[in-house]
């Protein structure tokens, strides 16, 4: 009997060891696919253009250079664009988080008439693609009273402040889910202590809502950073990083290639350098805030 037990134990040990190896291989494979473009970006961005057509060069370039990065920075007007994008981003995200939190709280904790109907609008906001409403929105800002707000950052700020920014519907939804799960006793206690609804929200509920606040803020930064569609409707110049990256190919043709019509293939190094420049800021943010992404989602009620 003793020997029998031993065999079972060792079989378990073997199968768990095999599983560990298999798991490692699967994760390695999938992880490689994800990391691959980043490695490729770095590998391309620091090589001379002629290395691209050299068949002996696959990963490690023969001629290391910073000139490609420098040229791309110049074309994209990198630092200025980065600054502008940065301020636009942070501003929009803060406004969006606050407006969505307030709205989500309103939907979660008050039983006013027509709540279901109005919440239907939130669901619609999640479902309707931006493309459907883009042109009329353009017209609104084109003729905003006596002003023409096109190319003015205000046409990003105003919708964000009113809870109608990029993917605001989803964010209101997240906040509503979260506030619905908060105990009602918290509010009641605050009322008894003489807090009005507004003060209750800001002093009791909001400080407890850190996880969804963080999640929504981080996602909002990512989405605003990567957005080029909405900003291409409102801006006709290359005002944000995403926009100038989108148009990098044509910008390259105008500057480096002097108006010649060249294929994407010849532009690869500059394009990859542009990608690297565009990814870098958000990647750095990600490295520092990585754990909040998961933590926030786990506790914000998005999953459940």
């Amino acid at each position: 009997m003793k020997g029998f037990g031993k065999i079972i134990v060792s079989r378990q040990a073997i199968s768990s060891a095999i599983w560990r190896i298999v798991r490692f291989l699967i994760l390695l494979g999938l992880g490689f696919i994800i990391i691959y473009p980043l490695i490729y970006m770095i590998s391309c961005a620091f090589r001379m253009p002629e290395d691209m057509s050299d068949p002996t060069v696959i990963w490690i370039p023969k001629h290391l250079t910073l000139s490609v990065i420098r040229e791309t920075m110049e074309i994209m007007d990198y630092w200025k664009t980065l600054c502008r994008t940065f301020f636009l981003n942070i501003g929009c995200c803060l406004l969006q988080v606050i407006s969505c939190a307030v709205t989500g709280y309103g939907f979660a904790r008050f039983r006013f008439k027509g709540r279901g109907l109005l919440f239907g609008i939130v669901i619609m906001m999640i479902l309707v693609p931006v493309q459907v409403t883009a042109i009329p929105q353009y017209m609104i800002f084109r003729h905003f009273g006596p002003f023409n707000l096109i190319n003015n950052p205000l046409c990003m700020y105003i919708p964000a402040a009113m809870g109608c920014g990029i993917k605001s519907g989803l964010m209101i939804f997240i906040f509503r889910q979260f506030f619905r799960g908060m105990p009602a006793e918290l509010e009641d206690a605050a009322y008894l202590d003489g807090c009005g609804a507004v003060r209750t929200f800001f002093t009791v509920m909001l400080p407890n809502a850190r996880p969804p606040l963080l999640t929504v803020f981080l996602f909002s930064i990512v989405w605003y950073w990567n957005d080029f569609y909405v900003s291409s409707v409102f801006f006709d110049k290359n005002q944000t990083i995403a926009l100038s990256l989108k148009n990098l190919s044509s910008l390259l043709s105008q500057t480096i290639f002097q108006g010649l019509d060249v294929s994407v293939r010849e532009q690869v190094v500059w394009l990859e350098a542009g990608c690297l420049l565009a990814v870098m800021p958000i990647l750095i943010m990600y490295i520092f805030l990585q754990k909040y992404f998961t933590e926030g989602i786990e506790r914000s009620g998005l999953a459940g």
Partner: peptide, 28 residues
């Protein structure tokens, strides 16, 4: 009274969504 305050909380969004979402939606 408490329920009415709910309108206060969603009012900014409500105006915003009517102007920047519902109106464009109907218009398109």
């Amino acid at each position: 009274r408490k329920d009415m305050q709910g309108f206060g909380f969603i009012s900014v969004w409500l105006i915003g969504s009517l102007v920047f979402f519902m109106l464009p939606l109907i218009q398109s």
